[in-house]
Structure formats: structure tokens, C-alpha cells
């Protein structure tokens, strides 16, 4: 995930801003977490792709 994607992504549930926490980064963020600054829901960045599925769509 490129850092500038933060300009357009948001929480799928309430559309509020997300906070980015990076665990692994090279040219892009490979592993990390996006956290909704309003509802607190967390979304993982897995092997470079953010998983922004709502909780009821996850495995």
C-alpha cells in the first residue's frame, strides 16, 4: 500500500479517517494496521494490500 492512499481511504463502516501503523515498509507499506479514529475498528495491511472489508464480510 502506497502511503498516499491514506488521502482517499477511510473506514468502510462510518467513513471516518484511519490512522496508519506500519510494521514492515519498503517502497510501500507491506504490513501494518489501519485503525478508525472514530469507531476504533482495525483493518490489517496484509502483504501490501489493505483489507478494508467490513467485519461481517471477513472469514
Amino acid at each position: 500500500m502506497k502511503r498516499d492512499l491514506m488521502d482517499i481511504v477511510c473506514c468502510p463502516l462510518d467513513k471516518h479517517d484511519l490512522e496508519l501503523d506500519v510494521d514492515v515498509e519498503e517502497d510501500e507499506v507491506l504490513e501494518g494496521t489501519l485503525t478508525c479514529t472514530d469507531c476504533g475498528e482495525t483493518y490489517p495491511i496484509e502483504d501490501g494490500i489493505p483489507n478494508l472489508l467490513p467485519p461481517d464480510m471477513r472469514d
Binding site: M1, C10, E46
Partner: peptide, 28 residues
């Protein structure tokens, strides 16, 4: 998609999101 876009030399100009078409994780 990631492999296809990289092979087409488009990785720099594209991004991929895992998400729900009925609850888009995108701002207005």
C-alpha cells in the same frame, strides 16, 4: 491483479484494495 498490473508496468500508477462494493472504504 497485482501480478497483471506489475507485468504491464502499471504498479506505480495503480493501487489495490480488499473491500466490499456495498461499503466502499473510500472518502467522498
Amino acid at each position: 491483479a497485482r501480478a497483471r498490473l506489475a507485468a504491464a508496468d502499471l504498479a506505480d500508477r495503480t493501487s489495490l484494495l480488499h473491500g466490499d462494493a456495498a461499503a466502499l472504504p473510500l472518502r467522498d
